[in-house]
């Protein structure tokens, strides 16, 4: 979809497998040898309409390591006027001679709107319930570090699938690379139509069969406001049926890794002993996030120079 997806990173759904592979390969190369400052003299706008210390910081660090200057604007700051339209804000900020816009927004599709109206690359850092492409890329990178492959793996994604942009980006990437994706959550948060979104996707409403023999267990945050919307009765009920505890994790393969995009709440969606176990790669996900985001920035802002260096 989209006129110019290749100029932007709006979502995994619009990316072909070779483009994804190239980003994963470049991140791996950067891990072996720190990249040069190919983006020196460039300015990147980090525009966040939702609070997220983790993702915003990760992008800022990635941009600076490549030599770029970052301008961070958050919704709470006075620079975004109350009631001003997204496009008016973007036009104003674009005038500050930025070379790319990294944006996080609470509404699905907001980066698509911006991408249609500006002449610089737009990187989606999470839009509503839609996509979080760099999260899926860093998750794939992390899985590859541990498993060496994605094809044929059983990956369980547990939690509030309906409202999760992380789940969507991951299911597209993983299914495109041949994994079996087992989505798991209460039926109210996991409509059956999810199975139609890609090849090899299963919907599970019970946790045990979803974990059985899994190679990767991805745990998603559960927001308690979903109770007020009657998606499930209480935190206690959720924990009882869907919390990934040490005991339940024993259903997965002994070498299974456990992932979480954060922020996580120990004792709710994930047992504390699981989060801190040797199987947990949650801290490593954070480190890999910077590598992936460097690869993305380099690919969109300095593709020619990057190709030269890696040749």
């Amino acid at each position: 979809m989209g006129e110019s997806q290749s100029r932007h990173l709006l979502g995994i759904a619009g990316l072909e497998r070779p483009a994804i592979q190239a980003l994963l390969d470049r991140a791996a190369a950067m891990q072996r040898r720190p990249p040069e400052k190919l983006l020196a003299g460039r300015r990147v706008l980090v525009l966040f309409y939702e609070p997220s210390t983790r993702t915003r910081t990760s992008f800022e660090v990635a941009a600076r390591r490549l030599g770029a200057e970052t301008v961070s604007v958050t919704a709470s700051a006075s620079s975004i006027e109350k009631g001003e339209s997204l496009l008016d804000t973007v036009y104003t900020l674009r005038a500050m001679a930025v070379d790319a816009i990294i944006m996080r927004h609470g509404e699905s599709g907001a980066p698509f709107l911006v991408a249609r109206h500006v002449d610089v690359p737009v990187i989606n850092a999470g839009d509503g319930m839609h996509e979080h492409p760099t999260q899926a890329l860093l998750d794939a990178f992390t899985i590859l570090r541990h498993k060496g492959r994605i094809a044929g793996l059983n990956v369980a994604i547990v939690g509030d699938i309906l409202h999760s942009r992380v789940a969507r980006s991951n299911l597209w990437l993983l299914s495109r690379f041949g994994a079996r994706v087992r989505l798991c959550g209460p039926p109210s948060l996991l409509p059956a139509e999810f199975a139609a979104l890609g090849a090899g996707i299963e919907c599970h409403h019970q946790l045990e069969p979803a974990l059985d023999g899994a190679d990767v267990v991805m745990v998603l945050r559960i927001q308690m406001e979903r109770m007020r919307e009657a998606f499930f009765p209480s935190e206690a009920e959720y924990v009882h049926y869907y919390s990934v505890t040490a005991e339940r994790l024993r259903l997965a393969r002994p070498d299974a890794i456990v992932m979480h995009p954060g922020p996580m709440i120990r004792g709710v969606e994930i047992g504390a002993e699981v989060a801190d176990s040797p199987q947990s790669v949650i801290r490593e996900q954070v480190e890999n996030g910077v590598l992936i985001r460097m690869a993305v920035l380099e690919q969109l802002l300095a593709p020619a120079e990057a190709a030269e260096k890696s040749a």
């Binding site: 599709g109 839609h130 309906l162 139509e193 979104l197």
Partner: peptide
């Protein structure tokens, strides 16, 4: 409400 809305992440 259907597969297209799930794909787009729209309510």
């Amino acid at each position: 409400e259907g597969a297209a809305a799930l794909r787009l992440g729209l309510r």
